[in-house]
Design a binder for these strands. Structure first.
Lengths: 228, 228
DNA sequence: GCCGAAAATTCATCATACGTATTGACGCAA
DNA sequence: TTGCGTCAATACGTATGATGAATTTTCGGC
């Protein structure tokens, strides 16, 4: 069944069937795929539900113009391509540096407590030699939340797939060199946190810039010398 | 047919059927909706294709955990809410200021020409009293492209719906006061363009900051005194 | 109470049939 | 030749019955 759906979709998206084209009739599909009409109809029902085709009774099934679904931004990142990671980091820096500054100026007492808690948790993980990617992200996310502008947090959520790679079942294709934790992670976060505690936007921005520039430098070093 | 699909979807999403719940059997659905098995099966085929349910032969059709489809970021903006526009502008500033700086440092000769052309076009529109929203966006977009980092342009594309409101057929709900063009638009763009031409990142960032701060100020003024 | 076989249930697919809408061909008249 | 009406062929929508395969339930024997 899924074979038929896949096949028909392929024919549609590959442009073999432009908008307005008529699909083969149910009877014809029955013959070409050697299945019953039930199966053919269920396959077409799926295509219809997805808005790919339109069935006109007595006439046939017709391909509709593909309404380009709004593409998920930042979803095409090839996390294994270092250049791609650098691109995203550059964009992220722009946002996060401002984010740190705004957080220093606006954070609530409660948000400050959350940040401190997250920072301690991350320090513990580092000390224990556990993975830090998620905890790291949470710290940055909490800073974005402390800006009191939800768009900053929303931005981080949107690019998260490009920051925190989904480990593929059993094997992670990312280069282990790149996964080595930043040795100064805790100190750098500490300086950001201190500046936010002090309510010093300039210092917070500087600390965040230093933190992200450090990552950028590590990526670039890897690009220059992948074996190093 | 669509009635059954809608109904079943509603039952699933409304939480009446949590993950693991069994849907009524085909025979039962046939009775409750007074349709044939054909129709019921086609409806279920659609739900299956959408990953909402899983059919186990001999056992039944079971609801799956709803895999939260990745929400389109920045798509929930209520452009008529000034506070929402301010939020987005604040985020956008962080990106665009850096964007201007990078563009000044990296723009190619061709990109510079494009920028100059777009700027002239915008100036003409202003002189002619024509709408400038799209041309304005294009100028900013071209700057993002001149960073040589596609993520900056991608970011602008993603938030565009929140910047350039789609005028609803016949009537635009946005307040006319907010739609009044920035009286210094051309001059401000000119300063940004000059800095990019000069290859002066600091000046470009300052000019972009001034430009966006101006918008921000106008929004805030409107918030304080909507009638002004 | 436990176990295993039989029965009932349920989805997957096939085949046939009827209704309705559309299309195209044919024939007839102007 | 052109235009029009009728009718048959085609195609989708739905209904129904039957078979197969996998699972669940029931129930009898121990």
């Amino acid at each position: 069944m899924s074979r038929i759906i896949t096949d028909l979709k392929e024919k549609i998206s590959s442009g073999q069937s432009v908008a307005g084209t008529r699909l083969p009739s149910e009877a014809a599909l029955t013959r070409t795929y050697s299945v019953s009409r039930t199966v053919v109809r269920e396959a077409i029902a799926v295509l219809r539900a997805e808005g790919l085709v339109e069935a006109r009774k007595g006439s046939g099934v017709f391909v509709l113009d593909a309404v380009e679904p709004p593409r998920q931004p930042f979803a095409d990142l090839d996390i294994d391509r270092v250049a791609s990671a650098i691109e995203l980091l550059e964009l992220r820096s722009a946002v996060e540096i401002r984010s740190a500054g705004l957080a220093a100026a606006r954070r609530s007492a409660l948000q400050l407590e959350v940040l401190i808690g997250l920072h301690r948790g991350l320090a513990k993980r580092v000390a224990a030699g556990e993975p830090t990617r998620d905890a790291d992200f949470e710290f940055h996310y909490a800073i974005a939340e402390a800006t009191q502008n939800q768009r900053f947090a929303e931005f981080l959520s949107a690019i998260r797939p490009g920051i925190v790679p989904r480990t593929v079942l059993g094997q992670d294709a990312a280069d282990p060199k790149l996964k080595a934790p930043n040795p100064h992670l805790v100190e750098e976060h500490e300086q950001i946190l201190d500046a936010i505690m002090d309510g010093d936007p300039a210092a917070a921005e500087a600390a965040m810039k230093a933190h992200l520039d450090n990552s950028l430098a590590r990526y670039r070093a890897f690009l220059r010398n992948p074996e190093g």
